[in-house]
């Protein structure tokens, strides 16, 4: 059974249709790139999978259950906005996460802190924008979750930090997990994703393994993306 099953999912914001009759199954053990232009429904889809938005129609099953308490136990979600109190120190945030998430791996978190060259006693508000983003990636990836949902983890981040964030994604990913990464910066992540979902107007336009698509079209996923959407 697929860890994520979506059948005929629709999501409206008033008259605007963000997701339009979308159906897909996703298995564990892969990193999936969720790409599409702004407003194509990427964030809406991730929010629904993360149990942050229950106002949708259609069927969404995570490990066989509707998004809710049970799915929150196995889903680690990274929002595209900052969402952690700025007055906390890095080590306090790690403590906070391990208080609330039983699958939080403190050792992993402190290792990544070192990788990111961040000090445990540093406060979020004393960090630059890129560092704040890194901390959130760190906290999200330090959970030994079954599903990771990362909404635009590398946008608005300088190239050096981008590299480290990608690194921590590879490091945090385990073989029995599913990771979904939404982005419009395909260039940077195309080497680390197994398969890709092209979303357009709330529908899946192309899906497939990245290596197969490269072979089939003879171009990079990024070029393919540009060809389709321009």
């Amino acid at each position: 059974m697929s860890i994520i099953q979506i059948n005929n999912l629709c999501k409206n914001y008033g008259k605007l249709q963000a997701i339009n009759n979308l159906s897909i199954e996703l298995n564990s053990g892969q990193i999936v790139g969720l790409v599409g232009p702004n407003g194509s429904g990427k964030s809406s889809l991730l929010r629904i999978l993360g149990a942050f938005d229950m106002a949708y129609s259609g069927e969404v099953l995570i490990n066989g259950l509707k998004p809710g308490l049970e799915s929150r136990k196995i889903v680690s979600y990274l929002s595209d906005k900052p969402y952690i109190s700025e007055s906390l120190r890095a080590e306090q945030m790690i403590k906070l996460y391990s208080d609330f998430f039983s699958d939080f791996n403190q050792e992993k978190a402190f290792n990544m802190l070192e990788l990111f060259k961040l000090k445990p006693e540093q406060k979020l508000k004393e960090m630059s924008k890129g560092m704040g983003d890194k901390i959130q990636v760190l906290l999200t990836m330090s959970r030994d979750a079954k599903i990771y949902l990362l909404d635009e983890p590398i946008s608005g981040v300088d190239p050096a930090s981008r590299k480290i964030i990608l690194r921590s994604m590879i490091e945090g990913f385990s073989e029995d997990a599913l990771m979904i990464v939404s982005t419009h910066l395909l260039n940077d992540i195309e080497n680390i994703i197994d398969s890709v979902l092209f979303l357009d107007s709330g529908q899946i336009k192309i899906k497939g393994s990245t290596d197969d698509l490269r072979e089939q079209y003879g171009k990079s996923i990024n070029e393919l993306f540009e060809q389709i959407f321009q």
Partner: peptide, 14 residues
């Protein structure tokens, strides 16, 4: 608001 993506991701009973 801004901290909801943390607070509402906590696997706690309603």
């Amino acid at each position: 608001g801004k901290r909801s993506y943390f607070f509402r991701s906590i696997p706690a009973r309603e």
